[in-house]
Write a protein that binds this DNA or RNA. Sequence first.
DNA 1: TATTATTAGTTGCTTACGCAACTAAGTGTA
DNA 2: TACACTTAGTTGCGTAAGCAACTAATAATA
Lengths: 148, 148
Amino acid sequence: MDNTKQHSVGRWISLLHRYGNVYMNEQLKAYNLGAGQYQFLAVLYDNEGLSQDELAHTLKMDKGTAARAIAKLEKEGYVERKTFSVDKRIKKLYLTDKAHAFKSTLTSILSGWSSITTKNLSEDEHVFAMKLLNKMSLNAETYLDEMK
Amino acid sequence: MDNTKQHSVGRWISLLHRYGNVYMNEQLKAYNLGAGQYQFLAVLYDNEGLSQDELAHTLKMDKGTAARAIAKLEKEGYVERKTFSVDKRIKKLYLTDKAHAFKSTLTSILSGWSSITTKNLSEDEHVFAMKLLNKMSLNAETYLDEMK
DNA sequence: TATTATTAGTTGCTTACGCAACTAAGTGTA
DNA sequence: TACACTTAGTTGCGTAAGCAACTAATAATA
Protein backbone atom coordinates (compact mmCIF):
# COMPACT_ATOMS: atom_id res chain seq x y z
CA MET A 1 0.00 0.00 0.00
CA ASP A 2 1.24 3.38 -1.02
CA ASN A 3 2.26 5.41 2.01
CA THR A 4 1.17 8.66 0.45
CA LYS A 5 -2.41 7.49 0.57
CA GLN A 6 -2.33 6.57 4.20
CA HIS A 7 -0.82 9.90 5.10
CA SER A 8 -3.30 11.75 3.00
CA VAL A 9 -6.66 10.37 4.10
CA GLY A 10 -6.51 12.30 7.33
CA ARG A 11 -5.35 15.37 5.50
CA TRP A 12 -8.22 15.26 3.03
CA ILE A 13 -10.82 14.60 5.68
CA SER A 14 -9.38 17.42 7.73
CA LEU A 15 -9.40 19.78 4.77
CA LEU A 16 -12.93 18.88 3.74
CA HIS A 17 -14.10 19.38 7.28
CA ARG A 18 -12.35 22.71 7.77
CA TYR A 19 -13.29 24.12 4.39
CA GLY A 20 -16.81 22.83 4.81
CA ASN A 21 -17.04 24.72 8.08
CA VAL A 22 -15.74 27.89 6.48
CA TYR A 23 -18.37 27.55 3.76
CA MET A 24 -21.16 26.80 6.20
CA ASN A 25 -20.20 29.65 8.51
CA GLU A 26 -20.26 32.03 5.59
CA GLN A 27 -23.63 30.78 4.34
CA LEU A 28 -25.23 30.64 7.76
CA LYS A 29 -24.00 33.96 9.08
CA ALA A 30 -27.06 35.78 7.75
CA TYR A 31 -29.27 33.48 9.82
CA ASN A 32 -27.26 33.88 13.02
CA LEU A 33 -26.14 30.30 12.88
CA GLY A 34 -22.75 28.65 12.54
CA ALA A 35 -21.22 25.37 11.48
CA GLY A 36 -21.76 24.03 14.97
CA GLN A 37 -25.55 24.06 14.82
CA TYR A 38 -26.84 23.06 11.43
CA GLN A 39 -26.35 19.32 11.86
CA PHE A 40 -28.61 19.31 14.89
CA LEU A 41 -31.23 21.24 13.03
CA ALA A 42 -30.96 18.89 10.04
CA VAL A 43 -31.63 15.88 12.23
CA LEU A 44 -34.59 17.59 13.88
CA TYR A 45 -36.19 18.25 10.51
CA ASP A 46 -36.55 14.51 10.11
CA ASN A 47 -37.12 13.66 13.75
CA GLU A 48 -38.96 16.37 15.61
CA GLY A 49 -39.44 15.63 19.28
CA LEU A 50 -36.09 14.01 19.93
CA SER A 51 -34.34 14.66 23.23
CA GLN A 52 -30.89 16.21 23.39
CA ASP A 53 -29.37 12.89 24.27
CA GLU A 54 -30.99 11.12 21.33
CA LEU A 55 -29.83 13.92 19.08
CA ALA A 56 -26.28 13.76 20.36
CA HIS A 57 -26.34 10.02 19.95
CA THR A 58 -27.64 10.23 16.38
CA LEU A 59 -24.83 12.56 15.41
CA LYS A 60 -22.26 10.75 17.56
CA MET A 61 -21.52 14.02 19.26
CA ASP A 62 -20.69 14.75 22.85
CA LYS A 63 -23.76 15.65 24.88
CA GLY A 64 -22.06 18.80 26.10
CA THR A 65 -21.58 19.90 22.52
CA ALA A 66 -25.23 19.11 21.87
CA ALA A 67 -26.33 21.10 24.91
CA ARG A 68 -24.53 24.19 23.67
CA ALA A 69 -25.57 23.84 20.05
CA ILE A 70 -29.20 23.50 21.06
CA ALA A 71 -28.95 26.40 23.49
CA LYS A 72 -27.81 28.49 20.55
CA LEU A 73 -30.62 27.20 18.32
CA GLU A 74 -33.10 28.01 21.07
CA LYS A 75 -31.64 31.45 21.65
CA GLU A 76 -31.95 32.22 17.94
CA GLY A 77 -35.53 30.99 17.91
CA TYR A 78 -35.18 27.83 15.85
CA VAL A 79 -36.11 25.26 18.47
CA GLU A 80 -38.08 25.02 21.68
CA ARG A 81 -37.36 22.70 24.58
CA LYS A 82 -40.38 21.19 26.23
CA THR A 83 -40.42 19.18 29.42
CA PHE A 84 -43.28 16.77 29.93
CA SER A 85 -44.39 15.54 33.30
CA VAL A 86 -43.54 11.92 32.52
CA ASP A 87 -39.81 12.36 32.98
CA LYS A 88 -38.73 15.80 34.04
CA ARG A 89 -35.11 15.25 33.05
CA ILE A 90 -35.92 14.95 29.37
CA LYS A 91 -36.29 18.04 27.23
CA LYS A 92 -37.90 17.20 23.93
CA LEU A 93 -37.01 19.43 21.03
CA TYR A 94 -39.50 21.04 18.69
CA LEU A 95 -39.03 23.21 15.65
CA THR A 96 -40.43 26.72 15.53
CA ASP A 97 -42.10 28.33 12.52
CA LYS A 98 -38.84 30.13 11.90
CA ALA A 99 -37.09 26.76 11.66
CA HIS A 100 -39.71 25.35 9.30
CA ALA A 101 -39.39 28.39 7.09
CA PHE A 102 -35.63 27.92 7.06
CA LYS A 103 -35.69 24.26 6.03
CA SER A 104 -35.48 24.73 2.27
CA THR A 105 -32.72 27.30 2.69
CA LEU A 106 -30.63 24.89 4.68
CA THR A 107 -31.27 22.16 2.16
CA SER A 108 -30.02 24.29 -0.68
CA ILE A 109 -26.99 25.44 1.28
CA LEU A 110 -26.13 21.83 1.94
CA SER A 111 -26.62 20.78 -1.67
CA GLY A 112 -24.51 23.75 -2.62
CA TRP A 113 -21.54 22.38 -0.76
CA SER A 114 -22.27 18.92 -2.03
CA SER A 115 -22.21 20.15 -5.63
CA ILE A 116 -19.02 22.06 -5.07
CA THR A 117 -17.14 19.12 -3.65
CA THR A 118 -18.44 16.58 -6.15
CA LYS A 119 -18.27 18.91 -9.13
CA ASN A 120 -16.29 16.71 -11.48
CA LEU A 121 -17.48 13.35 -10.23
CA SER A 122 -19.73 11.27 -12.42
CA GLU A 123 -23.07 10.17 -10.99
CA ASP A 124 -21.62 6.71 -10.40
CA GLU A 125 -18.56 8.07 -8.71
CA HIS A 126 -20.72 10.28 -6.54
CA VAL A 127 -22.89 7.39 -5.40
CA PHE A 128 -19.85 5.25 -4.82
CA ALA A 129 -18.09 8.00 -2.89
CA MET A 130 -21.07 8.30 -0.56
CA LYS A 131 -21.15 4.56 -0.04
CA LEU A 132 -17.48 4.48 0.83
CA LEU A 133 -17.65 7.44 3.17
CA ASN A 134 -20.58 5.80 4.87
CA LYS A 135 -18.63 2.58 5.31
CA MET A 136 -15.60 4.42 6.61
CA SER A 137 -17.55 6.39 9.17
CA LEU A 138 -19.32 3.26 10.35
CA ASN A 139 -15.92 1.64 10.78
CA ALA A 140 -14.71 4.62 12.79
CA GLU A 141 -17.80 4.49 14.98
CA THR A 142 -17.54 0.78 15.58
CA TYR A 143 -13.90 1.04 16.51
CA LEU A 144 -14.26 3.88 18.98
CA ASP A 145 -17.47 2.57 20.47
CA GLU A 146 -15.75 -0.73 21.18
CA MET A 147 -12.97 1.10 22.99
CA LYS A 148 -15.26 2.03 25.84
CA MET B 1 -30.24 12.81 -6.46
CA ASP B 2 -31.16 11.33 -3.13
CA ASN B 3 -31.36 14.01 -0.46
CA THR B 4 -30.13 11.69 2.25
CA LYS B 5 -26.77 11.57 0.55
CA GLN B 6 -26.42 15.29 0.30
CA HIS B 7 -27.28 15.70 3.93
CA SER B 8 -24.98 12.94 4.95
CA VAL B 9 -21.69 13.83 3.28
CA GLY B 10 -21.05 16.59 5.75
CA ARG B 11 -22.08 14.37 8.59
CA TRP B 12 -19.68 11.61 7.58
CA ILE B 13 -16.80 13.96 7.01
CA SER B 14 -17.50 15.58 10.35
CA LEU B 15 -17.65 12.23 12.10
CA LEU B 16 -14.47 10.94 10.47
CA HIS B 17 -12.71 14.14 11.43
CA ARG B 18 -13.91 14.17 15.02
CA TYR B 19 -13.33 10.48 15.62
CA GLY B 20 -9.98 10.69 13.88
CA ASN B 21 -8.97 13.43 16.27
CA VAL B 22 -10.09 11.40 19.26
CA TYR B 23 -7.99 8.50 18.00
CA MET B 24 -4.96 10.65 17.27
CA ASN B 25 -5.15 12.43 20.62
CA GLU B 26 -5.23 9.10 22.38
CA GLN B 27 -2.32 7.71 20.38
CA LEU B 28 -0.21 10.84 20.61
CA LYS B 29 -0.76 11.62 24.27
CA ALA B 30 2.25 9.55 25.29
CA TYR B 31 4.44 11.75 23.08
CA ASN B 32 3.05 15.04 24.38
CA LEU B 33 1.45 15.77 21.06
CA GLY B 34 -2.15 16.20 19.96
CA ALA B 35 -4.25 16.05 16.84
CA GLY B 36 -3.33 19.64 16.08
CA GLN B 37 0.34 19.00 15.48
CA TYR B 38 0.93 15.74 13.68
CA GLN B 39 0.01 17.00 10.21
CA PHE B 40 2.71 19.65 10.39
CA LEU B 41 5.23 17.08 11.50
CA ALA B 42 4.17 14.71 8.73
CA VAL B 43 4.77 17.37 6.09
CA LEU B 44 8.16 18.23 7.55
CA TYR B 45 9.27 14.60 7.34
CA ASP B 46 9.04 14.94 3.59
CA ASN B 47 10.10 18.58 3.32
CA GLU B 48 12.55 19.57 5.98
CA GLY B 49 13.50 23.23 5.86
CA LEU B 50 10.11 24.65 4.94
CA SER B 51 9.03 27.93 6.46
CA GLN B 52 5.90 28.23 8.56
CA ASP B 53 4.11 29.95 5.76
CA GLU B 54 4.95 27.26 3.24
CA LEU B 55 3.86 24.64 5.74
CA ALA B 56 0.56 26.38 6.39
CA HIS B 57 0.06 26.73 2.67
CA THR B 58 0.78 23.06 2.02
CA LEU B 59 -1.81 22.02 4.56
CA LYS B 60 -4.21 24.81 3.60
CA MET B 61 -4.22 25.91 7.20
CA ASP B 62 -4.34 29.34 8.69
CA LYS B 63 -0.89 30.73 9.44
CA GLY B 64 -1.96 31.49 12.99
CA THR B 65 -2.86 27.86 13.49
CA ALA B 66 0.50 26.90 12.01
CA ALA B 67 2.33 29.30 14.31
CA ARG B 68 0.78 27.71 17.38
CA ALA B 69 1.18 24.13 16.21
CA ILE B 70 4.85 24.70 15.48
CA ALA B 71 5.37 26.49 18.76
CA LYS B 72 4.07 23.35 20.45
CA LEU B 73 6.28 21.10 18.33
CA GLU B 74 9.26 23.27 19.22
CA LYS B 75 8.39 23.32 22.90
CA GLU B 76 8.20 19.54 22.92
CA GLY B 77 11.53 19.28 21.15
CA TYR B 78 10.43 17.96 17.74
CA VAL B 79 11.42 20.92 15.58
CA GLU B 80 13.84 23.82 15.60
CA ARG B 81 13.28 27.19 13.99
CA LYS B 82 16.29 28.70 12.33
CA THR B 83 16.58 32.20 10.95
CA PHE B 84 19.13 32.81 8.23
CA SER B 85 20.57 36.19 7.45
CA VAL B 86 19.11 36.23 3.93
CA ASP B 87 15.60 37.11 5.06
CA LYS B 88 15.22 37.60 8.76
CA ARG B 89 11.45 37.24 8.70
CA ILE B 90 11.62 33.62 7.61
CA LYS B 91 12.06 30.86 10.15
CA LYS B 92 12.96 27.62 8.47
CA LEU B 93 11.92 24.48 10.26
CA TYR B 94 14.20 21.54 10.99
CA LEU B 95 13.54 18.21 12.62
CA THR B 96 15.37 17.21 15.76
CA ASP B 97 16.74 13.74 16.51
CA LYS B 98 13.68 13.19 18.65
CA ALA B 99 11.49 13.87 15.63
CA HIS B 100 13.47 11.53 13.40
CA ALA B 101 13.21 8.79 16.02
CA PHE B 102 9.47 9.36 16.15
CA LYS B 103 8.87 9.10 12.42
CA SER B 104 8.12 5.39 12.21
CA THR B 105 5.85 5.62 15.23
CA LEU B 106 3.80 8.33 13.60
CA THR B 107 3.66 6.34 10.39
CA SER B 108 2.25 3.32 12.14
CA ILE B 109 -0.24 5.39 14.12
CA LEU B 110 -1.46 6.87 10.87
CA SER B 111 -1.70 3.51 9.11
CA GLY B 112 -3.51 2.27 12.18
CA TRP B 113 -6.30 4.74 11.66
CA SER B 114 -6.26 4.11 7.96
CA SER B 115 -6.73 0.36 8.51
CA ILE B 116 -9.50 0.94 10.99
CA THR B 117 -11.51 3.17 8.70
CA THR B 118 -10.98 1.08 5.58
CA LYS B 119 -11.32 -2.26 7.33
CA ASN B 120 -13.93 -3.83 5.09
CA LEU B 121 -13.01 -2.09 1.86
CA SER B 122 -11.43 -4.09 -0.89
CA GLU B 123 -8.10 -2.94 -2.23
CA ASP B 124 -9.88 -1.50 -5.27
CA GLU B 125 -12.42 0.30 -3.15
CA HIS B 126 -9.67 1.67 -0.96
CA VAL B 127 -7.75 3.06 -3.90
CA PHE B 128 -10.92 4.47 -5.39
CA ALA B 129 -11.97 6.03 -2.10
CA MET B 130 -8.63 7.82 -1.86
CA LYS B 131 -8.96 9.06 -5.41
CA LEU B 132 -12.43 10.42 -4.76
CA LEU B 133 -11.48 12.07 -1.48
CA ASN B 134 -8.55 13.65 -3.24
CA LYS B 135 -10.81 15.00 -5.96
CA MET B 136 -13.32 16.29 -3.47
CA SER B 137 -10.73 18.12 -1.42
CA LEU B 138 -9.24 19.65 -4.53
CA ASN B 139 -12.69 20.86 -5.47
CA ALA B 140 -13.17 22.38 -2.04
CA GLU B 141 -9.79 24.10 -2.27
CA THR B 142 -10.45 25.46 -5.70
CA TYR B 143 -13.82 26.80 -4.70
CA LEU B 144 -12.71 28.57 -1.55
CA ASP B 145 -9.51 29.88 -3.07
CA GLU B 146 -11.51 31.45 -5.86
CA MET B 147 -13.71 33.20 -3.31
CA LYS B 148 -10.89 35.49 -2.24
C1' DT C 1 16.33 57.86 -1.39
C1' DA C 2 11.84 58.16 0.96
C1' DT C 3 7.59 56.28 1.05
C1' DT C 4 4.39 52.72 0.10
C1' DA C 5 3.21 47.88 -0.37
C1' DT C 6 3.93 43.18 0.57
C1' DT C 7 5.28 39.33 3.30
C1' DA C 8 6.34 36.12 7.62
C1' DG C 9 5.15 35.50 11.84
C1' DT C 10 2.58 36.56 16.37
C1' DT C 11 -1.30 37.25 19.11
C1' DG C 12 -6.23 38.27 20.72
C1' DC C 13 -10.73 36.86 19.93
C1' DT C 14 -14.36 33.60 18.76
C1' DT C 15 -16.40 29.10 17.74
C1' DA C 16 -16.52 23.97 17.80
C1' DC C 17 -15.72 20.16 20.28
C1' DG C 18 -14.41 16.35 23.64
C1' DC C 19 -13.80 15.07 28.44
C1' DA C 20 -14.94 15.02 33.13
C1' DA C 21 -17.29 16.54 37.16
C1' DC C 22 -21.47 17.90 38.59
C1' DT C 23 -26.91 18.22 39.60
C1' DA C 24 -31.35 16.58 39.52
C1' DA C 25 -34.54 13.17 38.32
C1' DG C 26 -35.81 8.46 37.83
C1' DT C 27 -35.11 3.22 38.58
C1' DG C 28 -33.85 -0.77 41.16
C1' DT C 29 -32.95 -3.43 45.10
C1' DA C 30 -31.98 -4.80 50.11
C1' DT D 1 -38.73 2.88 52.65
C1' DA D 2 -33.79 4.03 52.26
C1' DC D 3 -29.77 3.78 49.71
C1' DA D 4 -27.37 2.82 45.53
C1' DC D 5 -27.26 3.05 40.44
C1' DT D 6 -28.38 5.13 36.12
C1' DT D 7 -29.67 8.75 33.08
C1' DA D 8 -30.47 13.73 30.92
C1' DG D 9 -28.68 17.79 30.92
C1' DT D 10 -25.28 21.62 32.36
C1' DT D 11 -20.95 23.59 32.96
C1' DG D 12 -15.75 24.26 33.45
C1' DC D 13 -11.69 23.33 31.16
C1' DG D 14 -8.45 22.39 27.41
C1' DT D 15 -7.37 21.95 22.44
C1' DA D 16 -8.00 22.98 17.49
C1' DA D 17 -8.87 26.21 14.21
C1' DG D 18 -10.16 30.55 11.45
C1' DC D 19 -10.13 35.59 11.20
C1' DA D 20 -8.29 40.00 11.81
C1' DA D 21 -5.15 43.30 13.63
C1' DC D 22 -0.65 43.86 14.60
C1' DT D 23 4.90 44.07 14.15
C1' DA D 24 9.05 43.72 11.80
C1' DA D 25 11.44 42.90 7.67
C1' DT D 26 11.85 43.12 2.75
C1' DA D 27 10.45 44.67 -1.96
C1' DA D 28 8.71 48.06 -5.10
C1' DT D 29 8.01 52.54 -6.78
C1' DA D 30 7.55 57.67 -7.03
